[in-house]
């Protein structure tokens, strides 16, 4: 054991040196590139955040100035003039409910498709896999009509239904992959203990798959929180619209209240950034497993 550990460590040190063998100009060019993409990604977010604390006049006056004093007027205005609070609550409800539903329902399917053999299983898998590759932008009209027909147009349940399905392929692949990696003895032990199908799923398999669950949930959360096109298509009233749609209003209504606009942008992007930074491990493992399996 110890021997291999030492061996491995030596190897790692070796590799590190190898990878840094690059010549000086090569390293300088690479550093410049990395600095460039970092700035490119961070500057817009930082600029918007700083601007959200500026007054309207300061925003109009100069793009590169700092706020003379920190003012929350933009945020107050965003919540007062715009129905940002309603949108925010809607977003929280739609995102959380659709995440729970998606994970639970698709998790069940993933479990069956991973652990059991039955007739037609491959057909089901192939069919479900196609949904991963479909450009959903091509399906807006029928989905719009279907949601309307079942009476869920312009309602939060309508969005919840669609978002639970939009995350179907990703969750299925992540969860199925995770269930496949669990030892089969776990299931057999549950069966010997006399646990029924539902019990062994809820009490033994699902908790064992927690890391996979978390990964799928984080991706589903980000998707639902950020989703825009279907929210735009499936709602048309304030009471059922979500935060990203609120931004749509700024193109017209707020044309003159820029600090409110910047404040609203911050309100929309901060939860995603927080979730990503805090749960980065889950996001990355989800993206890599989902993509490679896809």
């Amino acid at each position: 054991m110890q021997d291999t550990a030492i061996h491995r460590r030596r190897h790692r040190r070796h590799r590190l040196r190898l990878r840094q063998d690059a010549s000086l100009p090569e390293r300088i060019l690479m550093s410049l590139l990395l600095a460039f993409v970092t700035l490119l990604s961070l500057v817009p977010v930082i600029w918007v955040t700083i601007s959200s604390f500026k007054t309207n006049l300061e925003i109009m006056d100069s793009a590169v100035s700092l706020p003379s004093r920190i003012t929350f007027d933009g945020y107050v205005a965003a919540f007062r003039i715009a129905p940002i609070l309603t949108f925010f609550v809607n977003s929280v409800v739609v995102t959380s409910v659709s995440t729970v539903l998606n994970i639970l329902l698709v998790g069940m399917a993933a479990y069956v498709l991973a652990m059991f053999a039955f007739r037609g299983k491959n057909l089901v898998l192939v069919l479900l896999s196609t949904s991963l590759l479909l450009p959903m932008t091509a399906l807006i009209q029928p989905v719009y009509i279907i949601v309307q027909r079942i009476g869920l147009y312009n309602s939060l349940p309508g969005l919840i239904l669609v978002y639970s399905s939009l995350g179907l392929p990703t969750t299925l692949f992540i969860m199925r992959g995770y269930f496949l990696s669990l030892p089969r003895s776990l299931l057999e032990a549950a069966n010997i203990d006399g646990a029924g199908f539902l019990r062994s799923f809820l009490l033994i398999m699902l908790p064992s798959a927690r890391p996979g669950l978390a990964t799928a949930a984080v991706l589903q959360f980000l998707m639902a929180w950020n989703e825009f096109l279907y929210a735009l298509v499936l709602t048309n009233a304030i009471r059922s619209r979500t935060l990203p749609i609120a931004l749509n209003y700024f193109k017209s209504q707020f044309s003159f209240n820029y600090s409110a606009m910047f404040a609203s942008i911050v309100v929309v992007i901060i939860p995603s950034i927080l979730v990503f930074v805090l749960l980065q491990k889950q996001v990355i493992s989800g993206l890599t497993s989902g993509a490679v399996k896809g």
């Binding site: 990604s41 109009m60 590169v64 950020n226 825009f228 990203p244 995603s272 950034i273 990503f276």
Partner: peptide, 27 residues
């Protein structure tokens, strides 16, 4: 940092860029 534009709302990013490239108040 490089991943951030890939995980925030694209609608928000759209409005951000719209402002960033604005002829008058853009960065």
């Amino acid at each position: 940092a490089y991943m951030l534009p890939n995980i925030v709302s694209l609608a928000a990013l759209g409005i951000i860029y719209l402002n960033l490239f604005d002829s008058r108040r853009g960065l």
